[in-house]
Write a protein that binds this DNA or RNA. Structure first.
Lengths: 121, 121
DNA sequence: AAAATGATTGAACACTTATTCAACTATAAT
DNA sequence: ATTATAGTTGAATAAGTGTTCAATCATTTT
């Protein structure tokens, strides 16, 4: 077992040049976390559907719940997450609350991924 | 409480025109699931970093583990998930296994999201 | 053949998370 | 004011997930 290692793991063979080259290109930890978090928020079927629906029309919670076949509560919980991530915004009109997308980037991201998914099988 | 409802939830007020209009535009359930699943796979920091690293260079498991400061085991587990989703491919060379990206779409998706993340705060 | 090593795997564990249920708020209608 | 309803919220529960640890496989080296 050769000497000279770092980090947590018991690594014994590394292409140091390659690794340090890639290491330089790596984004900061915080950026990576944000990146992962953004994908994660989009990575739940209920939220995926909500965002797709809102990309078509401004909708109230009831409409969304009806559209997805989910309870208002479940939808509301998910909307809160999307709100916290600033992916959706809302507008109150009497008793009702209308939601719409707050971020054009997401629409692009979405259609890009949709293209990917629809292409393969 | 007015009559005429469908689905699971106790919905009493819906803009039926809007809802059915959006319903028509909705993608099939399977498509939505794939979409969500794809985002989900990208939505873990370890996998995010692996994919970013592989977008720069072909790397073996040890190199990736060293780069991320994770154990080989943890990396291997995540690589299996990425393999199953056909996001990475591998090449054996002796004892070592070299991984690389298997999908150009993901790179686009990735840089699109990165642009989004780096733009806001 | 035996030892060493890169990599994979399964089980266990701690942690996260999505939905449900019930209670609650706020607005509108009677 | 009372009732009804759109929506939110917190707690509880069940399901899912990432890492670690130990064992194992596969290939190379001695």
């Amino acid at each position: 077992m050769q000497k000279g290692k770092e980090e947590i793991c018991e690594i014994t063979f590394i292409d140091r040049k390659k690794v340090s080259s890639v290491k330089k290109k790596m984004k900061p930890e915080a950026t990576m976390q944000s990146l992962a978090e953004t994908f994660k928020v989009l990575g739940d079927p209920t939220r995926t559907k909500i965002i797709f629906a809102l990309s078509q029309e401004e909708l109230c919670v009831c409409d969304i719940a009806n559209l997805l076949g989910a309870t208002k509560s479940a939808v509301s919980h998910q909307l809160r997450i999307l709100r916290n991530m600033r992916l959706v915004k809302y507008r109150k009109e009497g008793k009702m609350v209308f939601y719409s997308l707050d971020d054009d980037h997401i629409t692009n991201l979405f259609s890009e991924c949709l293209r990917h998914v629809e292409e393969y099988d």
